[in-house]
């Protein structure tokens, strides 16, 4: 099962490698990882996407909690949550393809954020699955480059991850 684990960590140089090191040392998967500062400059929020059965994910969360630089951890996929990922796709766009890409981008509520004579860059945000679906839908030959941010997310409603 896919899980999104979100955590607050000390904004210190070693903190990220402690988290990623834990995953490699204990043989857990990281499908995606993203980290950025929060409104509190001393804290970063790190989100990672992993997979495993219930017992494995429970262990992952326990081990993350053990790290001194990790302040709070939550598996947001445990309950209702909202997740978003950002993707930019550079597509070869000439002739009839220009219209075709535009149409597809609209269907997926994407935006064309950069245009040259040969190339469109489409920006898409949404659940990771939706981004996968867009990639499925475009002609593979047209894709020049893809960059994805990795998922971020939060719990719905009153629940929140804070100090």
């Amino acid at each position: 099962m896919r899980h999104i684990i979100s955590m607050l960590i000390e904004n210190e140089s070693g903190a990220l490698s402690r988290v990623s090191g834990l995953f490699s040392a204990r043989g857990y998967n990281i499908h995606a990882l993203t980290v950025a500062p929060t409104d509190d400059g001393s804290i970063s929020r790190l989100t990672l996407v992993t997979s495993g059965n219930e017992q494995q994910v429970e262990q992952i969360v326990k081990h993350l909690n053990r790290l001194i630089d990790v302040i709070k951890v939550v598996d947001i996929t445990e309950g209702d949550h909202i997740e978003r990922e950002l993707m930019m796709v550079k597509l070869r766009a000439t002739g009839a393809m220009r219209e075709e890409i535009k149409r597809l981008s609209d269907i997926f509520r994407g935006t064309i954020v950069d245009v040259t004579q040969q190339v469109y860059t489409v920006q898409l945000a949404g659940e990771s699955q939706k981004l996968d679906a867009f990639i499925e839908a475009v002609d593979k030959g047209q894709i020049i480059e893809i960059v994805r941010s990795g998922a971020v997310g939060l719990m719905r409603g009153e629940k929140s991850l804070h100090l």
Partner: peptide, 14 residues
């Protein structure tokens, strides 16, 4: 040193 010992300490500091 901090990198080498990271997996075998409870915590380390530079």
């Amino acid at each position: 040193t901090v990198g080498i010992t990271r997996p075998i300490v409870k915590h380390n500091f530079l």
